[in-house]
Amino acid sequence: AARMHNRKRAYQPADLSRLMENLELSPAEVVKKWRGEEDEVEEVEDNSEDDFFNKSKVDDAANTEDRYIPFFDYAALEEKWEDEDNIEALKSRFAVGHMNGKDGG
């Protein structure tokens, strides 16, 4: 049961260093796996050394360039930040004025 539980968790720090060491994975695949977006690949991870499928997917990466500003879907962002819940959630990240002094460390 614990095994099942573990497998589902994305963003584990230990996983990232392991994935980063595995030079057979392209950075995009590392990111995907670490985020837990590719569930079916997780299954075969243990023996990925041998039967890792052909890595000829680099072609779509050939046309991309390095960016400092990532692409954003502004329509989705607008929706997200019009939502009161999200605004409230983010407010904790701001030091708000003098009026509510020191109620948050």
Partner: peptide, 21 residues
């Protein structure tokens, strides 16, 4: 103006001490 503000909020919400740029 709006896009820039949203982009900033998104960066702040990503957390961490250092942002992607």
């Amino acid at each position: 103006g709006k896009q820039c503000a949203y982009q900033l909020l998104e960066k702040i919400s990503a957390g961490g001490c250092v942002e992607s740029t």
